[in-house]
């Protein structure tokens, strides 16, 4: 239930302004941490990605994520995509694009979401949807998966607006008899399109899923030239405090505004930004870099060492016991 969820407690922001502020902070933090603290603004801009560039890149990869989910084989339910999108957005609120490359995180998000939402695909099946070096993709996804969960603070349950939409339509069919059911089915189709569109915006980080679903229904009803005003006032929100009604209506307005006024994905700028990113990204988190490989190797070595030390200790103890036994007999 949303009202008791971690989504409400930790991952809902007051609005676009707060999200932007958070992202700017993480960008700033990254630049300062990776040798940009004493540079003047101009060199900083040349060397590192600016906040705007980060956003363009982020939006681009969100788009790629959606495309990837849409053509995924076997066909993927919508809520898996919603959850994956949510992970992706949450992750980049707290982390800079330069810290972790979105192309890696994107795949890991989808993989993790398919697990959490019980959409059962194996990793081989999963990378089968990708072109290129599949072993490498497997390694990347599996090595980032645990990190991603940790960075999401293991808040893996995502409340998507799809079920609330279902609920609202059931309620509409049952309690609002003045429109015929075929009309409602049409509205449902349009509402689903609205939800798809809303995935590209940040509404899932700001509003309750039920509010988004309600906004979807109201907007699609309007597009279909059906008025649901009396449903809102006499059925759904009947008996609610006038203050609540007013605020709900306002929230829905905000959602519709946010969904309808999205900046387009600027594909032409992505290339240069990606090239720039190659120079300023955190090499420790780049699966292709030497540093990353060394770190991974060190981690494995450490594990090996601990294991072999353990083995040595056991062997020694055994040897000692044997010797004592032999000496004891003589």
């Amino acid at each position: 239930m949303f009202s008791t969820s971690t989504q409400k407690k930790h991952w809902t922001f007051t609005g676009e302004t707060q999200i932007t502020q958070n992202k700017k902070d993480t960008n700033h933090k990254y630049v300062n941490k990776h040798g940009g603290a004493n540079l003047d603004d101009e060199t900083k801009e040349k060397k590192y990605l600016t906040f705007t560039e980060e956003r363009i890149l982020g939006r681009h990869f969100e788009h790629v994520l959606r495309e990837f989910c849409n053509v995924f084989q076997p066909p993927m339910p919508k809520y898996v995509m919603g959850t994956a999108m949510c992970y992706f957005k949450r992750f980049y609120v707290k982390h800079s694009v330069m810290d972790y490359h979105p192309k890696d995180i994107m795949l890991t998000c989808v993989y993790l979401a398919s697990k959490v939402e019980e959409f059962n695909v194996s990793i081989t099946q999963f990378v089968g949807n990708l072109k290129g070096d599949r072993d490498k993709f497997t390694n990347i996804i599996l090595s980032f998966e645990l990190m991603l969960m940790k960075k999401l603070h293991y808040h893996l349950t995502v409340h998507n607006p799809y079920r609330p939409l279902e609920g609202l339509i059931i309620d509409l069919k049952t309690r609002y008899k003045s429109i015929e059911k075929s009309r409602i089915e049409k509205i449902r189709k349009l509402a689903e399109d609205f939800l798809d569109k809303s995935l590209a915006s940040n509404v899932s980080l700001v509003f309750a899923p039920s509010q988004i679903a309600l906004a979807a229904i109201l907007s699609s009803a309007e597009n279909d030239k059906v008025s649901l005003d009396s449903y809102m006032s006499d059925v759904l929100l009947a008996g609610a405090a006038p203050e609540d009604v007013k605020k709900t209506v306002y929230q829905i307005k905000r959602i519709r505004y946010m969904v309808s006024t999205q900046e387009p994905v600027q594909k032409d700028q992505v290339g240069p930004i990606q090239r720039k990113l190659e120079h300023c990204r955190n090499q420790e988190n780049n699966p292709d870099s030497e540093i990353y490989k060394r770190k991974l190797q060190e981690m494995l070595d450490d594990e090996d060492e601990i294991q072999s030390q353990k083995r040595m200790r056991i062997e020694e103890a055994e040897k000692k016991a044997e010797q004592e036994l032999v000496l004891g007999v003589i």
């Binding site: 949303f2 809902t12 609920g167 309750a208 039920s210 509010q211 609540d244």
Partner: peptide
């Protein structure tokens, strides 16, 4: 469940 999800959080 669907109804609960639909109503839950509307006044959030």
């Amino acid at each position: 469940r669907a109804l609960q999800d639909a109503f839950c959080g509307l006044f959030y």
